[in-house]
Design a protein around this nucleic acid. Structure first.
Length: 890
RNA sequence: AGGCGCGUAGCUCAGUGGGAGAGCGCUUCCUUGACACGGAAGAGGUCAGGGGUUCGAUACCCCUCGCGCCUACCA
């Protein structure tokens, strides 16, 4: 016997351990079954579960469990990402606390330290994934720095290099002075800010006045090597070729002409700092200007900054401004809206910085990645994201992949000290071809995203030709948030195409971002994060998972509200209690009749209307859920299950069969119990991918033959033709109309639910048989007795009435009858039906409607019109009766 | 600067070319043998505003307003 309330705590661990022990999550490398595979977006190895992960893994687990139950050889491949910069930062902070730093430790010791850290905290997020119920194949867990994956990284690097798709060069890149590394363009977050535009006067060397330039970063004037104007700008054309002297540092630079300059902006004259601005870099190249690097890697002023050497870049800005002001070189300062780039890992303002870096020549890769999406080999869901994808891909720029940190895949390039040969190799070379053994490996490591770009095939064993690759590549779907569409998804498509000649996944399902209840992005600094572990602690994992699924409508961000979890927690309790109800009514010796037998009607007692109805409803929810999951409409799947189980199964069906369950007719009872058990078991199976724990717990206790040892390997209910019973559904609608009509009278006239009412139902030819056959439901569900059904019934004195299609209901109330209240009620009804009539009448009197609308629609409206008129007339008659009685009483 | 999305009941959100839906909240009644984390009945919306297409628009098109996001080298 189940406890009175569902208590998730003990149950969850018990079943998770059971599933693991039974190896249910283990995929077959070779199998006759069709394959289904998802690779997890690997979370940062030292991270901890946040609500975004929770959503991500819930949706993946739903798909995986659904497919596993549906007979697929299912692989959910888990793992973690070494997260170069992020992890290195975490460990560096820890070192700082201990009063040391990585440079004191040295490279090797530092990396050892990080591995230790990984050992210590790497399990945290994995355990949290498990606590969410994730049915990953843990025997295939991978880490981006694993030996196998590292081999894949080297292989890819070398092959791209050999094809000329990787090159090294000195370019302006984004530099984070705090992380002390280059960043890819993507890794810079732009933030709009109200800044200043400083107008600086540069004097001509020949003493002939000055030219004014405008800049947002005045300190960069220290690196100026020209002033540029537009060649078409008549204001300045006579000045081209002259020289100006930079104030304070007194360096002379030329005035040049370049098309890039927008005459309308600022003064139309631009200071050119080729080593510190992307546009100036281009101008510098075009005009062979000197590149003066005025910064050091930690964001201080370099030797080249002369008197400002050693100053922090922002301190220097202040000092430069002061000096320019003091020497009369500031013409004016204006407000200026601008956007400033920040490091996506530490939020420090990044600098365009000139340095030698490795790049991937990306256009050829991007072309393929565009093609496979355009041609539909990769389907993006919701498809709206394709636009962003194409837009980004079409305007893509070379990818800076070298990072000046230590934690990561070291670039497989060696430089010979003797002959300066560059060796790019899969295996660490012993010596140079010149014979020298003085080889020094490149100091840099690769962008973390370089290795994650290979994830869908490196995890399956590439570059070896494994069974796993044959079985599971391309993977079935990638499920992730839009925030890493470019970082990760796009790059996986490029690499997958390049090295596997196939797309890495057939579908990409992009889900929303979770925000707080006010719609703000969750962040630790704002203090508005919802801790998923607290949710599961408080409400249970299943309730939380169900909530996430119910929230996961396509195309909109999720404003997360804890109240909603609480609501679904109630749903769990509802399920729990109907399970208790079933267990109370099914004894060990209860004979459960198979559904086939019930459907065929070959058992001793035929199924009742209620049985037929709930089976029909079940078949329709089965197809709804399967269809919804097939289209990644998780919210629809959750909603359909909620509606069916709570309102149809519990509110109607269970109540309808109580007379049979408590009655003496063993045959009737058997049919009812059997149907109930069957429908409920199917419901549990349908629910299992969303709420695995409670369904398994109940299912294991359910007293019936189940043909599997766990719900998670039981067959998933599949939609089948011919199981929808239209006749039963139509008849039940008529019965429900009668019940609802009587309940309505009871409710609106405030009659106690415990009061047994009498009812007379005046019927049409059509509904007479249906209601007569099913009178017991009406008595039970509307709490009535002595229900009379007939075509010639009359409105008894002191009775309330209501009009439904095909029937008119009278409820005699005698002493309880409040004639005024009833008149008010019916008058309101009349007003409503009056509106209805006008609405339809307006349509029908429109000639265009009659001639142009589809005939079927016209017919429908005509029928409605007749129905409303009849309804109005009936209500009218009933009111007249009331009036007569009142007059008679007076 | 370009692109995208959103604006529907008090709140959170579904949804559709033929009279507006759910959950929560709210009101009234009810401890009838699974469940008060429950049951029954109800109130509540010019579907942001304006124009257009259509017999018919909340839905399709255009504009405006408000909110959010992404991409971008305007000093």
């Amino acid at each position: 016997m189940l406890e009175k309330r569902y208590e998730p705590k003990d149950i969850e661990k018990k079943w998770y351990d059971f599933w693991i022990e039974k190896n249910y999550f283990r995929a077959e490398a070779k199998s006759d079954k069709p394959s289904y595979c998802i690779v997890i977006p690997p979370p940062n190895v030292t991270g901890s579960l946040h609500i975004g992960h929770a959503l991500d893994v819930t949706l993946q687990d739903i798909m995986i469990r659904w497919k596993r139950m549906s007979g697929f050889n299912t692989l959910w491949l888990p793992g973690t990402d070494h997260a170069g910069i992020a992890t290195q930062n975490v460990v560096e902070k820890d070192l700082q606390k201990q009063g040391t730093d990585r440079h004191k430790l040295g490279r090797e010791k530092f990396i050892e330290k990080v591995w230790e850290w990984k050992k210590l905290y790497g399990g945290t997020i994995i355990n949290q994934l498990k606590s969410m119920g994730s049915s990953c194949d843990w025997s295939r867990e991978r880490f981006t720095l694993d030996e196998g994956l590292s081999r894949a990284v080297r292989e890819v690097f070398v092959r791209l290099y050999e094809e000329g798709l990787i090159y090294r060069g000195e370019y302006l890149i984004n530099w984070c002075p705090r992380c002390h590394t280059a960043l890819a363009d993507l890794e810079v977050e732009h933030e709009d800010k109200q800044g200043k535009l400083y107008y600086i006067k540069y004097n001509f060397t020949d003493g002939g006045g000055f030219i004014t330039v405008a800049t947002t970063r005045p300190e960069t004037y220290l690196g100026d090597t020209a002033v540029a104007v537009n060649p078409e700008d008549e204001r300045y054309s006579h000045l081209i070729g002259k020289k100006v002297r930079l104030p304070v540092i007194n360096r002379d630079v030329p005035v040049i002409a370049d098309d890039f300059v927008d005459s309308a902006f600022g003064t139309g004259a631009v200071k050119v700092t080729p080593a510190h601005d992307p546009n100036d870099f281009e101008i510098g190249k075009r005009h062979c200007l000197p590149f003066i690097n005025i910064l050091t890697g930690d964001g201080r002023m370099s030797e080249a900054a002369g008197p400002y050497k050693g100053q922090d870049r922002f301190e220097c800005r202040k000092n430069v401004l002061k000096d320019l002001e003091d020497t009369g070189h500031i013409e004016k300062v204006a407000d200026h809206a601008m956007s400033i780039g920040h490091c996506y890992r530490c939020k420090t303002i990044v600098e365009p910085y000139l340095s030698k870096q490795w790049f991937v020549k990306i256009k050829p890769l991007a072309e393929e990645a565009i093609r496979v999406v355009k041609e539909g080999q990769v389907k993006v869901i919701p498809s709206g994201w394709e636009n962003s994808y194409f837009d980004w891909m079409e305007n893509i720029k070379d990818w800076c992949i070298s990072r000046q940190i230590w934690w990561g895949h070291r670039i497989p390039v060696w430089y010979c000290e003797a002959c300066s040969e560059i060796i790019v190799a899969r295996e660490t070379p012993a010596k140079c071809k010149c014979g020298s053994k003085e080889l020094v490996q490149d100091n840099d490591v690769l962008d973390t995203w370089f290795s994650s770009a290979l994830w869908p095939f490196s995890t399956l064993g590439w570059p070896d030709d494994t069974d796993e690759l044959k079985t599971f590549y391309p993977t079935s779907v990638l499920i992730t948030g839009f925030d890493i569409l470019f970082f990760w998804v796009a790059r996986m498509v490029m690499m997958g195409q390049k090295f596997m000649n196939r797309e890495p996944f057939r579908h990409v399902y992009i889900h929303a971002l979770i925000r707080d209840a006010e719609g703000q992005k969750m962040s630790k600094s704002k203090g508005n994060v919802v801790d998923p572990l607290k949710m599961t602690e408080k409400y249970g994992t299943d309730a939380f998972r169900f909530t996430l699924a119910a929230y996961a409508a396509q195309g909109r961000d999720i404003k997360f509200s804890e109240q909603r979890v609480e609501g679904y927690r109630h749903f769990l309790n509802k399920i729990w209690n109907v399970a208790r109800f079933i267990s109370m009514n099914v004894k060990e010796d209860t004979e459960i009749i198979t559904m086939e037998e019930i459907r065929r009607g070959s058992s001793r007692t035929p199924p009742t209307l209620a049985d037929r109805w709930i089976l029909s409803r079940l078949s329709s929810v089965i197809s709804e859920v399967n269809t919804a999951l097939n289209e990644y409409r998780f919210n629809d799947a959750a909603g359909a299950l909620y509606q069916f189980i709570w309102h149809e199964l519990c509110d109607w069906y269970v109540e309808m069969i109580k007379p049979e369950l408590y009655g003496e007719n063993a045959g009737a009872k058997n049919i009812a119990v059997s149907t109930l058990v069957h429908v409920f078991e199917e419901s549990l199976a349908l629910l299992h991918p969303v709420m695995p724990f409670i369904t398994e717990e109940i299912w294991q206790q359910l007293p019936c033959g189940k043909g599997a040892e766990s719900l998670c390997i039981r067959k998933y209910p599949a939609a089948a033709d011919g199981l929808t019973d239209r006749d039963a559904e139509e008849k039940m609608n008529t019965v429900m109309d009668a019940v609802i009509g009587i309940r309505n009278i009871r409710g609106e006239l405030n009659l106690s639910p415990s009061l047994e009412l009498q009812a007379l139902i005046k019927v049409s030819d059509h509904s007479e048989g249906i209601l007569k056959e099913n009178i017991s439901y009406i008595e039970k569900l509307a709490r009535t007795k002595d229900v009379k059904i007939g075509r010639e019934l009359h409105h008894p004195k002191n009775s309330a009435s209501t009009v439904k299609p095909d029937m008119e209901i009278f409820v005699p109330l005698e002493g309880l009858f409040d004639i005024d209240a009833e008149i008010i009620r019916l008058t309101k009804e009349t007003a409503k039906v009056e509106e209805d009539i006008q609405f339809v009448q307006k349509k029908l009197s429109n000639e265009n409607f009659i001639s142009k609308a589809p005939p079927q629609v016209v017919e429908e409206n005509k029928a409605k019109y007749e129905e409303y008129l009849a309804k109005k007339q009936s209500i009218r008659n009933n009111i007249d009766k009331l009036d007569q009685w009142r007059k008679a009483d007076e």
